[in-house]
């Protein structure tokens, strides 16, 4: 699996995609850092991470995931990994971890905001750390959706649109009926930013991810039978 992670992660930064994603996330962060901290003179960074998760991921996740399987399918390179002695589970998880790596880089850079805040006033690092843990979990969930979208098509654009549509729709769907509330991953990212690690939220995000990772693996497995 290490081979897949390493290669995928490297590929993100051999193409512009890795830089674009980090750039977008940092841009969104900076805007909300200005709006929530600089403008109001607050040292509380919790809303910063919340807004980045809400607006940043909707753009970053599709860009990060659209090529995952769609590109391999189109170029035929999936033939190389699927005929290698490595299981589909490892391929899927490897790609997920690599994508997460790009997000983690952004999170590490985002410590800069904490440093800036610290320069003016002493604040606890704990809410920042829980925000980040939560951010990693919600990113995994968003990446899983994107990964699934990428596995069902060979067109990257379509994969990206499906991901954006799903992430956007899920936010509004709960207004129609609260049944859909659990489809909206941002609902599971409300306590993390305030420094609370909530089991409900962890369980929500993890189970959401498992469903989509499972679906991706299922698609890959099924295609063994259906593809020509």
């Amino acid at each position: 699996m290490w081979a897949i992670i390493k290669k995928e992660f490297k590929s993100y930064f051999l193409s512009p995609i890795g830089y674009v994603v980090v750039g977008i996330l940092l841009l969104v962060s900076s805007i909300f850092f200005y709006l929530t901290s600089v403008q109001t003179g607050s040292v509380d960074l919790s809303s910063l991470y919340y807004y980045v998760a809400l607006y940043g991921l909707i753009i970053a996740a599709p860009i990060l995931t659209m090529r995952m399987f769609a590109e391999e399918r189109k170029n035929g390179t999936e033939q190389l990994i699927l005929t290698a002695p490595i299981s589909i589970t490892k391929v899927v998880l490897g790609k997920l971890v690599a994508a997460l790596g790009v997000i983690v880089i952004t999170l590490l850079i985002s410590f800069g905001y904490y440093a800036i805040v610290c320069f003016f006033a002493k604040t606890s690092i704990i809410p920042v750390l829980t925000s980040m843990v939560g951010f990693i979990l919600i990113s995994i969930a968003a990446i899983s959706v994107g990964m699934f979208a990428s596995s069902i098509t060979e067109n990257q654009i379509i994969a990206a649109i499906i991901t954006i549509a799903f992430l956007l729709m899920s936010i509004f769907l709960e207004n129609i009926n609260t049944v859909f509330a659990n489809l909206c991953i941002i609902n599971f990212y409300e306590k993390f930013p305030s420094g609370v690690v909530s089991l409900t939220e962890i369980a929500g995000l993890v189970s959401f991810s498992i469903v989509f990772i499972g679906l991706t693996m299922l698609v890959m497995q099924r295609r063994k039978v259906s593809r020509s």
């Binding site: 290669k7 590929s11 051999l14 193409s15 170029n75 035929g76 390179t77 033939q79 190389l80 005929t83």
Partner: peptide, 14 residues
């Protein structure tokens, strides 16, 4: 098995 597929798929960024 060592397999060489038909359309020589390669990772273009490597």
């Amino acid at each position: 098995i060592g397999y060489m597929p038909e359309n020589v798929p390669l990772y273009s960024e490597l």
